[in-house]
Design a protein around this nucleic acid. Structure first.
Lengths: 336, 336
DNA sequence: ATCCTACCGTGATACGTATCAGTACCGATA
DNA sequence: TATCGGTACTGATACGTATCACGGTAGGAT
């Protein structure tokens, strides 16, 4: 028995009023006597009436819905979504999350479709998209891309702020480190590129020795293999890994070669994943406030929806957390 | 310049045909000559026409959209969503993910709203909901709850299959362990309850000694504190942690007390999180195929949408992965 | 020449809602 | 009494699409 959903007309019939009256009552607009209001509400409750949002959207051309687009693997996407969702709700929007994958072209096409579907008032993408989606999307449907590259292929946005890399390297240098290694992430991630650039810039600025930049893929294996590839006389060494997972691989790789962490090799990560404080040794890393990053991204979208200017010059969301995996190089492995 | 979106009527005008013809062309139905088809497609491209899905939904009463509901923190939700999303797409549905939080009542109410909104054809929830949402939701909008309790408060579903606990305990016993400890998760998670029950049942069945079940919250801290709470003569010991994060806390707690892992304390986790193979020692754990679990859950929903019976009796998705953190108890700590 | 078939295409309509314009009523004011 | 203003409600309409029920045309067969 496929019970048809009750419409506002059904409610009107039951309450003995016009359909338009039901609409006014439920919207809280117009002038309605308390008596009829009561009758209508009761009828609505009895029929379990729920407005058909598709019809409402068509009529008002306002859906009250925005989308957050996810896709590429990332650390703790749920936190970012929670932040974004909260802001959306504060601003009166329902947010739903769309999972897209495939190439950047596929993703962009899909997002474009969504933006033009009349179902969404705005789109917030946490995955990179082609630059021309902004132009192709309807003028009244803003598309915000959170982690992206700017015109000069520099990374832009809260999520790609790599300034803590400088702090890491400086502090390690102050501890006595002179020899460094970076294990990078895939270059299609703006954040990976930003960290790599910051590493190279800081090492050069301080006149330190870089044993190189190893290309990786965010995985523990890439950290492990980076250590395997080093010559036996690599230590003392400070390894700046692009994230915590890689850092764990680095620590394991060091252990396998008989190098003590942090005595022979100091290691830093990025993300402050849940296990990092409990590792042996606990991992020095960079805490990023993903929830706040999500909030900010959605604020941008909401600002665009309201034709307001986006906030600017907010403080960084990253904090370096110093733990046991970083220490002065042990004298025993000191080089001449 | 808020350019209004082009409608099918605009396309029709430009192509010199009726609106209905445009509709037929785009749907690939009806009989349309190649010439007009071409004209229409060209006009559509020129105007960058995209169908208004809200209007289409209202007309067809089919939205082609289903929702996946997330909320409580879980390990790697993205993998589950990817699996679910893939199945949805195969079946011709677009899936969007809704992030709900709050109490179970709040969540249920929100899901109910969504199910009745006319925007969705089905709902797949990965968070527990009140049992009566099924009854309250419209008859033609199935609501599937993936991780849940059955009528007897037993956990049900792929995601809560706790049978590997028996395998863990049996194998540890075969290694020579007789003293066990379980660090459990919060009882509002069906999966936590299932693992706890399986632990207690297996220990009892094999006549082993359980030092107890420590209540935890999935966190590294709860593992750490479980170890702190033990008497000095606890080892040799086998700790079955409810997940990898807790297991890492356990390993750190053991190290802090001078207990060797696995010599004095063997440890097992659950989830096979990305860092587990690279820890020192690497962690014995249970790999759960989250992607396949997501696929299966969505299959259930799709089956319900097509009035088909759900598949039944599928093989388990879990695999025990034996690594370095489990070994025979060291003779040095053997008890009389 | 007439009829039958396909083939191609059109006009009209309904989906469920929000809102504009209008009407009926009632009390108050001039 | 006539006029006004306000309240409480109704009827009609439009949003953009899909689809039903037709109609016109061409071409072949009879």
């Amino acid at each position: 028995m496929p019970a048809p959903r009750a419409t506002s007309r059904d409610v009107a019939r039951l309450a003995g009023v016009a359909q338009s009256t039901v609409s006014y009552v439920l919207a809280g607009k117009g002038s309605i006597s308390p008596a009829t209001r009561e009758r209508v509400l009761q009828a609505a409750a009895e029929l379990q009436y729920r407005p058909n949002l598709a019809a409402r959207a068509m009529r008002t051309r306002r859906t009250g819905r925005v989308a957050a687009v996810m896709g590429l693997p990332a650390y703790d996407p749920a936190a970012m979504l929670a932040g974004a969702s909260a802001v959306a709700q504060e601003s009166g929007y329902a947010m739903d999350v769309l999972h897209v994958d495939g190439s950047i072209e596929t993703r962009s096409e899909r997002v474009l479709e969504l933006a033009s579907s009349g179902q969404l008032e705005g789109v917030l993408s946490f995955v990179p998209l082609l630059p021309d989606v902004h132009a192709q999307a309807p003028d009244d449907v803003p598309v915000i891309v959170s982690e992206t590259f700017d015109d000069d292929m520099h990374a832009a946005g809260d999520l790609v702020d790599a300034s803590p890399v400088a702090e890491l390297v400086e502090h390690l240098a102050a501890l006595g480190h002179t020899r460094f290694l970076h294990v990078a992430g895939p270059p299609r991630y703006a954040s990976a590129v930003a960290r790599r650039d910051a590493y190279l810039a800081t090492v050069a600025r301080l006149g330190l020795t870089s044993l190189g930049v190893v290309d990786g893929d965010w995985s523990g294996r890439s950290g492990l293999e980076a250590m395997r590839s080093l010559p036996d006389d690599a230590p003392p060494l400070a390894v700046v890994a692009c994230n915590d997972l890689v850092a764990v691989g680095v620590m394991r790789g060091a252990a396998d070669r008989g190098w003590a962490v942090p005595g022979d090799v100091s290691v830093t990560g990025w993300d402050d994943i849940a296990v990092s404080p409990y590792l042996t040794p606990s991992l020095t890393t960079v805490d990023t406030d993903r929830t706040e990053a999500g909030r900010r991204a959605m604020h941008q979208l909401v600002a665009a929806l309201g034709q307001e200017p986006a906030p600017h010059g907010l403080p960084s969301l990253t904090t370096v957390v110093w733990r046991e995996s970083t220490a002065p190089p042990s004298p025993r492995t000191a080089r001449p």
